[in-house]
Design a protein around this nucleic acid. Structure first.
Lengths: 219, 219
DNA sequence: CAGCCTCTGTGACAAGAATCACAAACTCCC
DNA sequence: GGGAGTTTGTGATTCTTGTCACAGAGGCTG
């Protein structure tokens, strides 16, 4: 075993201990022995639309933003993945050798744990904790996707914008959002002017304060 | 064992053989021995929004329509479930005792197989076929939900309507759709007048023919 | 400080979709 | 056949959102 791989294994255990504490020691060891680490810098793409998966992906550090891509290259924001979570799509695509229809981008320096598909059968059979984790990942992402549908179907743009801002504040753990109107418009698949106008309204209602390059929320 | 239950078991095997042929005999027997059958008449609700699940649901006969409900009671059509498919939500909610955020309605006389949650651990551990089936159910529903998002986000109402009609033809295996404009409008969360006008346009383009209470598609 | 780029604000207009109002056509049932 | 209920067609109007055009403000760099 190369020194590099020994280091990988050490680091895998570290992240497993930090963010996957519900896994029992035997499960953690098994994953650590087989997983490898991959690093991504902020802004780097982790998955492209249509890519094949050869492994299951767990987020060890950082933050990943998932988008659905439109025909003309528009990037509609779906949800974030955080440390301790798994890419639900990578788990199923992995078992079936199918392609993913989603694009993922690291928005912070990010480290992911990749587990070879071959290990899945063993993990599912031997570790109830693991299959609970897998099913729960699915359920959570599924529910999150359903709330996205809800918003798009039943809500108007001003409500969607408000929900978007609240969600950002929660996920990023801050009331100061470093983001431009154009970026928000992209995430919501709207246009900059519309977002600017709606933000102005929110400011007039004292719900937020607007500054150059960032927004302060008073939710 | 009551005669009734004996009949249930017999019938369960029958449906398992008919629509779940990928399951190996041992798996089918185990499910048949533990599952029970429930019948629903056309139009009956199978799940209500917010309901708890105590079992995993497989569709044995008929057809089930799944909706997402809006705050004002609007019912937005998500997808159909057919014989051989499982309700993905019931599998995860079952393992975690969570509530579902979806409403399901039988649109034909429908028979479902319900498998008690207690059996899940055993099935997952002992039968690779089963956990592949579970993960694949998830993947398929997830992808289907993503295409719903795509349509709502990136497409205009005329494109969504066309996609809707094609999907109905495929799923219901017919070019004659017995459906009113109002029902389509409900499924797409639009209004009857808008749908009527767009249908007229499709008719002018020779893509469909309109009749009272049904539509003939020439796709 | 001058020039350039990015970000934001705003008015005018266009397009899509929802709503209202009403009429016509079809179906069923007494 | 006549009336009631359901389904469909269509114009007029309004609302929301997207698009175009342009201006000004802030920040960076030579």
């Amino acid at each position: 075993m190369s020194q590099n791989q020994a280091m990988d294994n050490y680091s895998s255990s570290f992240f497993l201990g930090k963010h996957f504490s519900q896994f029992e020691p035997a499960l953690k060891e098994k994953i650590a022995a087989n997983a490898s680490l991959r690093e991504f810098s902020a802004g780097e793409q982790i998955m492209q639309t249509g890519q094949y998966f050869r492994s299951t992906v767990l987020i060890a550090e950082g933050r990943v933003k998932l988008y659905r891509e439109g025909a003309a290259g528009e990037e509609f924001f779906i949800y974030y993945l955080e440390p301790g979570q798994a890419c639900a799509l990578s788990m199923i695509c992995a078992t079936r050798q199918e392609t993913s229809q989603i694009m993922a981008k690291a928005i912070e320096p990010t480290i992911v744990l990749t587990i070879p598909i071959q290990l899945m059968d063993d993990l599912m059979r031997e570790h109830k904790t693991w299959y609970y984790f897998v099913l729960d990942s699915y359920r959570s992402r599924f529910e999150e996707l359903l709330t996205v549908v809800d918003n798009v179907i039943f809500k108007s743009m001003d409500e969607r914008l408000e929900y978007y801002l609240k969600r950002q504040c929660e996920k990023l753990q801050t009331k100061q959002l470093r983001i431009t109107h154009q970026e928000i418009a992209n995430d919501l698949n709207s246009s900059r002017e519309v977002i600017s106008r709606l933000l102005k309204k929110l400011e007039q209602n004292r719900q937020i304060s607007l500054f150059r390059n960032y927004i302060e929320c008073h939710f």
